[in-house]
Amino acid sequence: MRKLSLLGLLGLVIRRDLLLAMRRRADVLTTLIFFVMVVSLFPLGVGPEMDMLRKMASGVVWVAALLASMLSLPRMFSADYADGTLEQMMLAPQSLSVLVLGKIVAHWMLSGLPLALIAPVLGLQFDMSVPALWALVLALLLGTPVLSMIGAIGAALTLGLRGGGVLVSLLVLPLCIPVLIFGAGAVEAVNSGMSAVSNLSLLGAFMLFALVFTPFVAAQALRISME
């Protein structure tokens, strides 16, 4: 049996996780529905004035995206941890970091990507202009992977703990604040006429920085939790 290359492993893990998720489609939809619901609640709370809503649109969408991705984090490792496949995965000859990266990408495709795709529709609720919607989608596409990556560290650390779901959010949310600031800032910049390039480039920088370190750190966290 030929030795699986790292890219092969990455593709395998992503395909496997997506396949598993598709079998339990409800989990994917809960994240999406939660996101839509939270965003739609704000106008009910704040009131229907359009100029108020337009001003706070980016912040509302981003905070909802943050909370929605926190929601699905515990599931990243818990299913495999429960039935022991995680142990087998850790014994694999290939590096654990690449395997964890595969899981992160799969989690992102199930939580971050749908949020980014549906965000424009929600943006219309807040009467956002088209350039602002573009900035929102781009910012979400750049920012949500970072949420998944940092979230992976939190999920790995709190593996198998009771009350793990809330604990992950407590650990991970403070670390995601820069992403929130520059994500919402991107849309804010477009609304106030400036170009959002600086915010988006910073978000891109965060993503690359996280891409380099988080798989390794999450792998270490897994080893610590699985000892």
Binding site: I150, I153, L157, T158, L161, R162, G163, L167, L170, L171, P174, L175, V217, Q220, A221, I224, S225, E227
Partner: peptide
Amino acid sequence: LGYIALQASIEDPRRADRASALLAIVG
């Protein structure tokens, strides 16, 4: 508070130390 919560929520002292250590470093 995240560090203290993680430290407190893991019974096994060895894992608690190492997990919260990783969190402190990332933090």
